[in-house]
């Protein structure tokens, strides 16, 4: 676990391709330390992971070929918190609608449709109400964005547009179809990092209990 405890958790950002520096800035704003994750070795010391926006096929091809996806899957299955935006949401989905064989991390009970709103000319920004982060609505930038078509019982929908979920979470994962890293609104990053801190503190307490009982 992180050497300095949970107050400034170490968040890895999957840095195969996409909007990496934007997430670094957002995470620094909410008090996290960051590092770039490009190989399976980079994943050892992190408390949480962000999978950024980018092209999900590119991220899947490069990270899948190097064994990085398998390493991510192992950590997330073991409970490491993860935030996925746009392509990151696709990477974390159990199912991509319309098939395709792109490599994924998977594990979240959602069915995602890629490019659901259409090509770039239909990309847009809009106010999206996300009650879990409070008022006012978030200014959400959707770029060739996916949406969620179906969710399993372990998933809580946090926001929708026209009946399609665009923000959701389960016990370890938060996903957004839009790009909170492209605006100055840090509430979704804060929600994620608070979850990372809570988990790190829980693990620390467990460790203390084990040590104390010996």
């Amino acid at each position: 676990m992180s050497a300095t405890g949970s107050s400034r958790p170490q968040i890895g950002i999957l840095a195969v391709q996409g909007a990496v520096s934007e997430h670094e800035a957002a995470l620094a704003d909410v008090g996290a330390r960051t590092c770039r994750v490009r190989t399976a070795d980079d994943i050892a010391g992190i408390d949480g992971l962000v999978i950024p926006g980018g092209e999900s096929t590119t991220i899947g091809v490069v990270a899948g070929g190097s064994g990085l996806l398998a390493a991510v899957r192992e950590r997330v299955d073991a409970g490491m918190p993860v935030l996925g935006t746009c392509a990151g949401m696709i990477m974390l989905a159990d199912t991509v609608a319309g098939g395709g064989t792109q490599p994924l991390v998977g594990g979240m009970e959602i069915v995602v449709r890629r490019n659901a709103f259409g090509r770039q000319i239909h990309s847009f920004e809009a106010d999206v109400d996300v009650p879990a982060v409070g008022a006012p609505p978030m200014r959400a930038i959707f770029i060739r964005a996916p949406w969620i078509e179906d969710v399993g019982p372990s998933v809580e929908v946090l926001a929708s547009i026209a009946g399609h979920p665009v923000v959701a979470r389960d016990a370890t994962r938060i996903v957004a179809a839009f790009h909170p890293e492209l605006t100055d609104d840090r509430r979704l990053h804060r929600l994620f990092v608070d979850g990372v801190r809570a988990r790190a503190e829980g693990l620390q307490q467990e460790e203390d209990t084990v040590v104390g009982s010996q």
């Binding site: 092209e55 990309s123 060739r144």
Partner: peptide, 14 residues
Amino acid sequence: DAVKAGLARMLKGG
């Protein structure tokens, strides 16, 4: 502008 320049941000590193 945010939507137009945003797609380029998603292409970074590619």
